[in-house]
Simulated scan of single mutants.
Amino acid sequence: MTSHRIALIPGDGIGTDVSDAAMQVLHAAAATAGFSLETETFPWSCAYYLETGAMMPEDGIETLRGFDAIYLGAVGWPDTVPDSVSLHGLLLPIRKAFDQYANIRPHRLLPGVEGPLKSESFDILCIRENTEGEYSGAGGRVHQGRDNEVALETSVFTRKGVERILRFGFEQARARRGHLTSVTKSNAQKYSMVFWDEMTRALAGEYPDVTVSHMHIDAMAARMVMAPETLDVVVASNLFGDILTDLGAAIQGGLGFAASANICPDRAAPSMFEPVHGSAPDIAGQNIANPIAAIWSGAMMLHHLGESAAAEAVENALSATTAQGIGARPGSHSTQQITDAVIAALQG
């Protein structure tokens, strides 16, 4: 029997709740499909930081390196640990150390879910550059606390980094409906974003079967609201992709449906899968968090592991569950009720 080793980091708040739900579904899918998931849980979180002074141990990256994939619940407890500490102490180091440069987020309405827009037919795949750009961490502060204080945050765009994320986007568009929208702000950022536009045009010649559109970030935000059905694959820098994918989550019914994958495409290191709704400490442990984004992220992990039949079975079970109204509206069902319904649909 094939077995996949999964590093499980439940994290903080509802991360523990939804990762447990996702694992219940994924183990059920694995049993049905004839493979197994061997999970090892790591307690790295804000609570771990308060105990040890670090979000993960010094050898944390090397510990994770031996796994086939990483599953992350959620990280953050801003009342006790600043987000800048939790983010830079766990999530970003993992993404960068394992070269998970492609962040993938699907945006579509599941059956029975009512979004805020009139359109119900959109199916958008957002590809976000995940390791450099505006989140490179280059910069600093001087004269802190004084009238002449200066803070600098420098975006870093490399030819390698821009080319590979664009190429990844082109390949995804080729495998879907053949349309790529590249998002920049080159009318205002005349170096990095003009460079991005030039790279997009250069690569477009290698993909004659893909139609390419160029949009500024502000116009793109409007397009996602006014005409989301016109979009297929959207590729953007780290910051712009971050913003657009939260907008994508909003139009697909909310963050409870927002799944994501942090992919190392050459598979030289493990990829990481996570819902992007955050840790929501105020509802943690109450059995009311929506686990659909977590389960959907798990299905993306199964696809990456080569278990596509099981992944599609989980996605179909999610659709069957929300079509019955279970988990389709905030607060309508408990975490466990939704989980049980997905497993029943999977096995039935």
Rank of each mutant, 00 (worst) to 15 (best):
L92T: 03
S260F: 09
R159H: 02
G278P: 07
A344S: 11
A221C: 14
H4F: 13
T32D: 15
N316L: 00
Q337N: 15
R201G: 10
T245L: 11
T16A: 07
I94H: 00
A29F: 04
E274D: 08
T80E: 10
P111A: 01
N148P: 03
Y101P: 02
A29Q: 04
T211D: 13
W296Q: 06
P10I: 04
T200D: 13
A323E: 04
A250P: 02
I70P: 04
M224F: 06
G327F: 00
K118C: 06
G60V: 05
V194Y: 13
S3Y: 01
V314D: 00
L239H: 14
A269H: 12
V225N: 11
I14A: 02
V85Q: 03
K190C: 12
S279D: 12
E307D: 13
E153F: 07
V81N: 01
P57C: 05
L166V: 06
G178V: 10
T2I: 10
E149M: 07
V81T: 03
E114Q: 09
A69K: 04
H277N: 11
T39P: 08
V113N: 02
S271L: 02
F157I: 14
P10D: 01
N238K: 13
V194F: 12
V162G: 07
I217T: 06
V150C: 01
S192E: 10
Y135F: 15
H88K: 13
A293Y: 10
V18P: 05
